[in-house]
């Protein structure tokens, strides 16, 4: 049960197609929205220095961000939200989305972080960057938890969409009619994603109780990812302030939105 805002009782506008989609169709659409493998395409010189590792990490993040915007636009219903909501959601969750992608790529590689097919790091390689080992360890621990749960691709894509759509829900309250309408659309869209995740879990052949527990365990992991992202944001801001790394383009814009 949840309290519906008043506009949710109005007839469904024709453009809200996701509300009429089956969970299976919705998952199929967000699976198609998945970005391709993104390569760093740099000649990595090992051992890394603090500056070279930070430069590789930020170069890759900047590339991934461009694809992330394209991914968000392909989630059914996202572009029907107000532009302000689209911007706010993305600026709040970008590092969480990058981290969940990293966790997914690393889930079958214990002890390693697979940033891209051509940029893989062992835990110990984090030693060369001050303060990053703590973040690597938290990422590896979250990855191990997803490994224990045997995270499925369908569940992963739903969790990623949930991070995006849930990222800004509690930091603003709608003031104008337009903002309220967008908020209502956002809540309906979140309903569709939750339905899709429930459906994905229901296909795994678990008992009803095990399905409920799995839903709880998977969604509880999202609070850990938010925590790691906040730590990562602080770390990147510090590295930028100390001029260890030059942050530019879209990454700079997204980072500054969070400072």
């Amino acid at each position: 049960l949840h309290l519906e805002p008043p506009l949710a009782r109005l007839p469904q506008p024709p453009h809200e197609q996701h509300a009429a989609m089956s969970p299976e169709e919705f998952i199929s659409r967000i699976m198609e929205a998945e970005p391709p493998d993104i390569y760093l395409m740099e000649d990595l010189k090992k051992p890394f220095t603090e500056a070279s590792m930070m430069m590789s990490l930020t170069n890759l993040a900047d590339k991934e961000l461009v694809f992330m915007i394209s991914w968000a636009k392909k989630i059914p219903g996202f572009v029907e939200l107000s532009l302000a909501d689209q911007i706010n959601l993305l600026k709040c969750c970008w590092l969480e989305i990058l981290m969940l992608g990293l966790i997914w790529r690393s889930v079958d590689h214990p002890g390693k972080l697979i940033f891209s097919p051509d940029f893989k790091l062992n835990r110990e390689e984090g030693q060369c960057v001050e303060g990053i080992m703590e973040i690597f360890d938290m990422l590896l621990a979250a990855t191990a938890r997803f490994r224990e749960l045997k995270l499925q691709r369908e569940e992963y894509v739903c969790l990623k969409a949930m991070i995006l759509l849930n990222s800004n829900l509690c930091s603003t309250s709608p003031q104008t009619a337009e903002e309220l309408a967008s908020r209502t659309r956002l809540l309906r869209l979140l309903d569709s994603v939750i339905d899709a995740l429930v459906w994905a879990i229901s296909k795994l052949g678990l008992s009803t109780q095990q399905q409920t527990l799995r839903l709880g365990h998977l969604t509880m992991l999202l609070s850990h990812i938010r925590h790691i992202s906040n730590k990562g944001m602080d770390h990147l801001s510090t590295m930028k302030r100390k001029n260890v790394v030059l942050v530019y383009n879209l990454l700079l814009e997204m980072l500054e939105a969070n400072i």
Binding site: I69, L83, N88, N249, M254
Partner: peptide, 24 residues
């Protein structure tokens, strides 16, 4: 409009149909 000015690149990517391949 301040939101759009503060997030020029993000705003541009959300509004136009440029594919990431073109920008990468």
């Amino acid at each position: 409009s301040s939101l759009k000015e503060k997030h020029k690149i993000l705003h541009q990517l959300l509004q136009n149909n440029t594919s990431p391949g073109d920008l990468a």
